[in-house]
Design a protein around this nucleic acid. Structure first.
Lengths: 142, 142
DNA sequence: ATAAAGTACCTTGCATAACAAAGTACCTTA
DNA sequence: TAAGGTACTTTGTTATGCAAGGTACTTTAT
């Protein structure tokens, strides 16, 4: 396990959520989705996206229709079903809660760092006083 | 695939990140971690946590020492290695970027909903005018 | 003593999912 | 008609979450 792996893991869970969001705004096909995900700096490849779309279709969250293209093979344009819309609302909640949970834990760490830092400053007779703008220690990090 | 599955997926990626954060604040053993994760409403079971700790240890991000307990079997107290600390900093960045990416996509959907809604209102001759505080449509959702 | 309950850590087997890579098929252009 | 582009699909590998069951140590109740 390396750090890149962990970063990949972190992105994994939210993919489905993002896909549903993108489709919720109107009919799109796979390349449209890849474009938008890329522009949001979420890197996804075809081998991930297509099976995911198939799973969501089989789960009844998506539907699609074939549309002829003027420049290439026909495309599968996806839309959300009613179930897909309901699920997306639920996932909106889940995302909010998840972000809250993580920020709670990260915030607690920053709080801890701050306390430790103040303790060290109190013991440090050579301390020049306040040290504003130290990385990771400002109140806005909470 | 059901909606619960998607919610589980969403939580998956951030587990490692949260564990590293908790350990970064000082020596803890598994039950301490489970308590904190639970209080942050992140549900994890032993069968998930122990293998994860072993993986992080083998990857060189964690170290541990056995400590006798006054009320039960000995405990493994974990600490971060230097590599673990470096990795945590990288994951802090990753989390920030991920949250930004997701909020970008969710925000775009809310923007879209707003436009669609305004369009419908403009066509709706029976419209009583502004409809403040409609769910999911306020500016603060962005 | 000894059984029962509590605590802590570990392992096995299964299901899911991301991804790389290779494949199929259709369309346009040279 | 061959080459290149676009779009969708499939296969095999790997990682991982988790349920369930296991080992081992300690305390408490009988």
């Amino acid at each position: 396990m390396n750090i890149e792996n962990a970063q990949v893991q972190m992105r994994k869970g939210i993919l489905e959520f993002c896909i549903l969001h993108i489709i919720s705004r109107g009919e799109v096909y796979a390349s449209d989705m890849l474009d938008e995900l890329t522009s949001a700096r979420i890197m996804v490849v075809e081998g991930t996206l297509y099976p995911l779309l198939t799973r969501l279709k089989n789960a009844g969250l998506l539907d699609y229709k074939w549309v002829e293209s003027t420049s290439g093979p026909p495309r599968k344009y996806y839309i959300l079903t009613d179930l897909g819309r309901t699920s997306l609302n639920a996932l909106d909640e889940t995302w909010k809660e998840l972000a809250e949970s993580v920020n709670l834990i990260v915030g607690k760490t920053n709080q801890h760092r701050k306390v430790v830092n103040e303790h060290h400053e109190a013991l440090d007779v050579d301390s020049p006083g306040n040290r504003p703008n130290q990385p990771g220690l400002s109140a806005t990090d909470l």
